[in-house]
Design a protein around this nucleic acid. Structure first.
Lengths: 153, 153
DNA sequence: TATTGTTATACTCTATAACTATA
DNA sequence: TATAGTTATAGAGTATAACAATA
């Protein structure tokens, strides 16, 4: 374990920003931002759910989901329906408009991933995949259990 | 090349956000944001340079550098000095305050990277490093030469 | 004419705090 | 008391457009 990746933070951010930048550039015609697509992706993948559930998946505060869904609902990408059992809660549902566009966007994303990963072998891709999951997992654990150099409340 | 990483965008963003989030959490006492540290990192690494040069390194618009350096200068992290040859331009220089804190922050970053990469072998780290560089490179090339599915001006 | 950097303005995303309605 | 969601407000980051000063 002597190999420390220099500027890991910059590398990760650059790759992420460029990928999302390309995505946003290509999907500009649809009128959804990257953050909104990210929410929509979870919604299409997991099905209708409450805003609290969405906030957990997106790892943001509920108020942020409130803001995102506000605009998306206005533009007809989703609806907020009453929860059948809990009158406080609302179920967020993707509209037909979203479901129609989804396959096109998914194909676009697939093409973008191919482009991004061009020149990397299957084995390298597997390692990359595993490494990214591991990093997130490690940092998640670090958040749950702060190190001694930090000051837990 | 049959292995396509599912949700590559989400994986990259999650890893990046968590890493920068941890970084910001640990450096909160210094009063610089993640974006400001990113700028400072380039400045310390490459030495004094114009705002245009910084904008190119950070891959943002000059106006964004203007905003960042405004606040950083007010807080005493850098100075904007006159360019000796070009009176339009200004050279951005890190102050002693920044240079003093730098080693501490660098050590903190190294520790954070160790934490993030924990459980990954040297070989896996090398592959990760190469893969991240390759992704950025691929997407950079894509920006320079848009695909047929896009509409170049 | 082109470049460096700014001001004015605006947008998105995100968050804290205080609140309503409901559980 | 706790939870789902909101309003009010604010901040960071980024951007376009118009402009100034200089090359």
């Amino acid at each position: 374990m002597t190999y420390r990746i220099d500027r890991l933070g910059t590398l990760l951010q650059d790759a992420s920003r460029r990928l999302w930048g390309r995505f946003e550039h290509r999907t500009a015609d649809y009128g959804l931002s990257a953050a909104q697509w990210r929410l929509m992706g979870h919604l299409l993948r997991e099905g209708p759910m409450t805003q609290i559930a969405l906030a957990a998946l997106l790892d943001v505060e509920p108020i942020s989901v409130s803001r995102l869904t506000d605009r998306m609902e206005q533009q007809g990408w989703l609806r907020r329906e009453a929860h059948p059992e809990d009158r406080r809660a609302r179920i967020v549902v993707a509209t037909a408009k979203a479901c129609e566009v989804a396959p096109t966007v998914r194909a676009l994303v697939d093409g973008l991933y191919d482009q991004a990963l061009s020149g990397l072998s299957d084995e390298e891709r597997r390692v990359l995949h595993r490494a990214l999951l591991k990093i997130t997992e490690n940092l998640q654990a670090a958040e749950a259990q702060p190190s001694s150099s930090e000051t837990p409340k």
